[in-house]
Design a protein around this nucleic acid. Sequence first.
DNA 1: CGTTGCTTTGACCGGTTGGTCAAATCATTG
DNA 2: CAATGATTTGACCAACCGGTCAAAGCAACG
Lengths: 202, 202
Amino acid sequence: MPKDRAPTRIQQKNRATILDAALDVFSAQGFRGATVDEIAATAGLSKPNLLYYFPSKEAMHEALLERLLDTWLDPLRAMDGDGEPLEEIMGYVRRKLQMSRDFPRESRLFANEVLQGAPRIHDALSVDLKTLVDSKCAVLETWMASGAIARVHPHHLIFSIWSLTQHYADFDVQVRAVLGPEDPFDGAMAFLDTLYRRMLRP
Amino acid sequence: MPKDRAPTRIQQKNRATILDAALDVFSAQGFRGATVDEIAATAGLSKPNLLYYFPSKEAMHEALLERLLDTWLDPLRAMDGDGEPLEEIMGYVRRKLQMSRDFPRESRLFANEVLQGAPRIHDALSVDLKTLVDSKCAVLETWMASGAIARVHPHHLIFSIWSLTQHYADFDVQVRAVLGPEDPFDGAMAFLDTLYRRMLRP
DNA sequence: CGTTGCTTTGACCGGTTGGTCAAATCATTG
DNA sequence: CAATGATTTGACCAACCGGTCAAAGCAACG
């Protein structure tokens, strides 16, 4: 293990390589299904070398989840209470769908974790996530009270955005098996646009 | 292994016990994360006894998926082209949400499998599932052509029903962490009712 | 009751897993 | 170049994994 100094270029590069490979494997196999050997092979490094940069398999997983939770909620944070209500919501939907298209591995890592009971992030969900969601639901409620958008249960509105957008990353195989060669994301964005505009039209 | 006769009462009971325990473990840990020992402990039987009734861990998983695929699509099959269009769709949504409430383990088993690339059911998805979905999409299109419901991309309409309903089983932990003590399913049904009626109103 | 065949399990096996360690190699700096 | 510390790895280990097997237990029936 290196001493407690500023990380060298080699350290930065190798840590990044390892986390990228770990994301590949964890998102495809789940935590217990992933093996350090497979991560090492994907990263093009030896197994002991991985464990030189991270103290354990668990630590790699933690590092990924920590980094993920920060960025995963940015699109929701960016929903601005002072903006045009319907366009703010549509912007959130669009950003979230783009994340499913551009970062499907992150989406599946998260899905795997929650599917299996969120043992490692349960606190973050019921504190940080809940706090953020509750505050955005308050915003949604003022928009509904002002008549800018139609009335619906605000929490379930947010759940619907998560579910509809992440579905295209998490269930990608199924979506493509049913759709055939057609690209899912173009049709999805058009569909979601219609859905939310019709549902929320005052 | 028993000979090729009608299964005894003991066989029926033990097979059922094993599959129930296997569903518990596979749905919570994924295929690779599940261990035969844990399934055996959950079932209250010894490991060699499980492997007396099923030739392998893989066989238990297959038996579950086979049974699941048959029943999982029943709600969609039941959508009747001759019925009242909007009520047929709402009935499908209601049945699917009830399945998430009553059979969350089955939903999570399916989600785990698809998340990890559907290695064991890919053919079933791109043949049986696709055939069924395509035929139901044709029905939806006649309803849209007749003006009974508004025009939307029929495949994405079905994806939306899958995603919105299964979300409450697959992401149950997250939903409850955010919602608190409130029961998710009552609010969900009301929300989905509003969503689809507004989106599909001609 | 005795025999037959279904059921159950303790002990075991080869392969894999996460993780360790000492030794070798490499980069950096004086 | 010499020396110091960062980096890399082959060999190894104990624990665990899926699966086997022979022997024991048990129920059913003549």
